[in-house]
């Protein structure tokens, strides 16, 4: 009798466990749901992945801020060149530092492509139907978001240390970030494109070093164009970074004219150059991604 009872409980439990298992399996392999087939599906998921990795690791953010802050302290405060620039040299340099942090963050956008290739994640993504273009654009977008947030922090620090805020307003700040957005979009596309085929971080590092410092020094980010030799002035005028810095200074510092200082281009032209730059490079990146991401 007792035996029978135990046996029947055992059977019920086993039965339950089996039913549970069966249900689970049926569900695990029932008909597939309707898929999102838009060419941009997965774009946000990929972008968000990189952003989550970034904000979960605040050390990265802190490290990336060290350089511009040291520059501001060293050249803006300690040495404080007595150049005749609008708002004083510290404010002038602060605008340059916004471009600096955008440039350096964008340069490392390619690095995350290299790591994804190395650790196999890229292959995983490529084996799914996610758009090849979405993979590239996600790398650009995550870099843009990061660089703009970092630029905002740098701006906050600069203001705290005495940047001239007389011309700050919703329009000028928003406009500045708009121009930084285009700069970041173009530069990130450039560096992602250069990394698409590479699984080798040394080469990528070399590319970053090769491009970063010339893009920074051959621009008006640190010093006024007027203080440079003629040939360098030509290079500065070819460098998209210069137009971003020029635009930011016109908006944030009201630097339209001052004795011994002239703008690089009218504000609308600054915007034009950067929008064109961003559009050209991101299109190129998407086109190349079709060719380069499959072999």
């Amino acid at each position: 009798m007792t035996d029978d009872l135990t046996r029947s409980t055992v059977t019920t439990q086993e039965q339950l466990a089996q039913d549970e298992g069966q249900k689970m399996r049926e569900r695990a392999f029932r008909a597939a749901p309707k898929l999102n087939r838009s060419p941009l599906h997965g774009l946000w998921a990929l972008t968000n992945r990189d952003l989550v990795k970034w904000y979960k690791n605040p050390i990265q953010l802190v490290i990336s801020l060290v350089q511009p802050v040291v520059w501001l302290g060293l050249f803006g405060k300690a040495i404080n060149l007595s150049l005749d620039v609008p708002g004083g040299y510290f404010s002038y340099l602060s605008a340059g530092m916004l471009a600096f942090i955008i440039l350096f963050t964008a340069a490392f956008a390619g690095m995350s492509v290299v790591w994804d290739r190395r650790f196999g994640f890229m292959n995983k993504a490529l084996s799914t139907p996610v758009g090849r273009g979405a993979i590239v654009v996600s790398k650009v977008l995550q870099s843009v978001v990061r660089s703009l947030i970092q630029a905002a922090v740098v701006l906050g620090i600069a203001v705290a240390f005495g940047m001239d805020t007389a011309n700050f307003g919703i329009m000028t700040v928003a406009g500045s970030f708009a121009i930084l957005f285009f700069m970041s979009f173009g530069l990130s596309s450039l560096f992602v494109m250069l990394a698409l085929r590479s699984a080798d971080w040394q080469t990528q590092m070399a590319i970053i070093n090769l491009l970063n410092l010339p893009l920074l020094f051959a621009s008006n980010a640190l010093l006024p164009v007027e203080s440079m030799p003629g040939w360098l002035q030509t290079v500065v005028r070819l460098n998209p970074v210069s137009y971003a810095v020029d635009g930011v200074r016109q908006m944030l510092l009201g630097a339209t004219s001052a004795p011994g200082y002239s703008v690089l281009a009218p504000l609308w032209a600054d915007f034009g150059v950067l929008v064109g730059f961003a559009a050209l490079l991101s299109l190129l990146g998407i086109v190349l991604s079709w060719r380069l991401l499959s072999k």
Binding site: L35, G42, W44, A45, T128, V130
Partner: peptide
């Protein structure tokens, strides 16, 4: 850097599920 679940969900997103 992601959890096991996040990894699978990410995969699902890439399939458009």
């Amino acid at each position: 850097d992601l959890t096991g679940l996040q990894n699978i969900l990410l995969c699902a997103d890439l399939y458009g599920i």
